[in-house]
Write a protein that binds this DNA or RNA. Structure first.
Lengths: 333, 333
DNA sequence: CTGAAAGCGCTAACAG
DNA sequence: CTGTTAGCGCTTTCAG
């Protein structure tokens, strides 16, 4: 009365061969006489046999499943990465166990452990920052790990990114060249390396190169939300900023709408460059100029790198940097 | 020299008990003397033992993993559902294997089979339409299945939705009451039940109730994309429509921007109601009035329903309809 | 090219 | 309350 499963044993019996042989044909082992292979395949088809992946996993110690830790699937930035990950995973016959972490370190550790308990062959981690607890789990684990779109200051695991320093530097420089003297940087917590170490560094480099003094009050540390963007715009208006590099698209749309709602004309009176080039940049009015990170590719390359690691192939470089562009739209002159 | 795993047997030996006892404490079986439980827990902790979920799955025939088929994680509509699904899955100790299908029937069947091979305890399917091949797989499978945000005309499996007929009827009615004589309906393929059977029906009912004749040329069948929306607006302008009910938010933003770009004032000269109330509706300018489907809840309830089915609990109703609202913003008068 | 047999790590009766 | 004993369904030597 249960889901009466037909096993490899049933197939063996019906085909008058041993389970070993059935196993061989299922696994594409070439050491099987074409005739018997044909016979077995026919029985498999007739019985509608489907190998039990769990049993397979136990016996072979491979699950062809990788764990993916994502802050929030609902966030376009991460879901774009996830799509790239899943596509190449599928390409290499892996499945993905997706787990939302809300960037909560405790949840991350928790999820990490259940993923390892499920014997995933590899792990992809997304998130703006790696807490010490998570880092500890990483180094304790023998399972291959790759970070997608997040930086690992000590390069213990693989990672795929763009050069955030250069990207922000380029964006800031463009704004300066457009004639802006007061360019703001609006982004997430400086505690997170991508902001505190990379974006801020690129921003300062651009300022330096243009001979403009760094003004701390032009740097806004905020959460990545639409409302935070609207609030940030008000602040900027107060201190006279005329342009901004923004670290997140939703945040940038907030800044944009804050300006529009305040009757400030973009890009004439205020210029804006955002960072992720998600669909939002095209849907906003005016459309947003953006650093163009190849999100899908970052995910895809991360997964590809992971397949190599799981396969124990030689890796040229554990840390890969993909190129970026700046896509100019109508929020800049 | 592989990842030297410590097994339940190691724990048993170290704690001087049988593996059965270790298994009992790991599984919270109350039939263990507190003292021995304590001893075992201590050893587990000391050895850093982590039960192998694959072996567990093979022995118990439960994987505490459910398969989730999603057209595209990158689509806010579906990712919102997915978030609801994952949250309640986590709540009930399940993990999610997420697979993108691109609404491609062949891929769906393929994915369905690998998911079943991995012995998932249940399945959640998202997608606008269920092909005959997929339907066939559904009925062939003994694994519990729930549809989230998609309708199943023959109710073979569980499903969670809102009443699309009523929702579109309400939206259309509002537009008519605002004085529009030419209300368009812009949505996906009529082949898909949600459009052809439900939305169209609700649209016609509203027209009927208002004594307005149905005009086929006011119904647009298109893909769910920003560009399709811009194109649709041009069409509508040609035939003199003054309002539209749109089946997808990204599509609606396209319509909106098409209007804005053409210098048409919204809502004065054209009114718009969209369907999914994703963040996009708030980021657009003017902000979009929308049918408010509780996306997260649909996902959450679908997963909850699935847990009941996996648990063989009694279900009051396999098909559940959640309520909806219409959130008025600035694309309607 | 094929079969026999020993596990993989854990759960689940069944005794006691 | 605890231990023994079969498996779960498949992979993988090891012979032949």
């Amino acid at each position: 009365m249960e889901k009466q499963t037909i096993t490899i044993y049933d197939v063996a019996r019906e085909a008058s061969v041993s389970m070993a042989t059935v196993s061989r044909v299922v696994n594409g082992n070439p050491n099987v006489k074409p005739a018997t292979r044909k016979k077995v395949l026919e029985v498999i088809d007739r019985l509608d046999y489907r190998p039990n992946a769990v049993a397979r996993g136990l016996a072979s110690k491979k699950t062809t499943t990788v764990g993916v830790i994502i802050p929030d699937v609902t966030n376009m930035f991460f879901s774009s990465l996830a799509r790239g990950i899943d596509d190449v995973a599928t390409m290499y016959k892996y499945n993905i166990i997706l787990a939302n972490s809300d960037e909560n370190s405790q949840k991350e550790v928790q999820v990490l452990n259940t993923l390892l308990a499920k014997q995933v062959d590899g792990l992809i981690y997304m998130g703006h920052e790696i807490s010490d607890e998570v880092r500890a789990e990483f180094s304790r684990s023998k399972t291959p790990i790759v970070l997608a779109g997040s930086v690992d200051p000590d390069e213990q695991v693989g990672s795929v990114n763009i050069d955030y320093v250069e990207a922000v530097k380029a964006a800031t420089t463009k704004l300066i060249e457009d004639g802006n003297k007061q360019v703001a940087l609006i982004t997430g917590p400086m505690r997170q390396p991508i902001n505190g170490q990379y974006r801020l560094k690129g921003y300062k480099q651009a300022l330096d190169a243009a001979g403009i003094a760094y003004d701390e009050s032009l740097v806004f540390e905020t959460e990545y939300s639409y409302n935070a963007g609207m609030a940030a715009f008000k602040q900027m208006q107060k201190i006279g900023a005329t342009a901004a590099v923004v670290g997140d698209d939703e945040l940038a749309v907030g800044v944009l709408d804050g300006a529009v709602d305040a009757g400030v004309s973009i890009p004439d009176d205020f210029e804006l460059i955002t960072s992720n080039n998600t669909k939002l940049t095209e849907m906003a009015r005016p459309q947003l100029t953006s650093i163009d990170q190849p999100l899908y590719d970052i995910g895809a390359v991360a997964m590809r790198l992971l397949t190599k690691m799981m396969n124990k192939e030689d890796i040229d470089a554990k840390t890969v940097m993909l190129g970026f562009d700046i896509t100019e739209r109508n929020s800049t002159k």
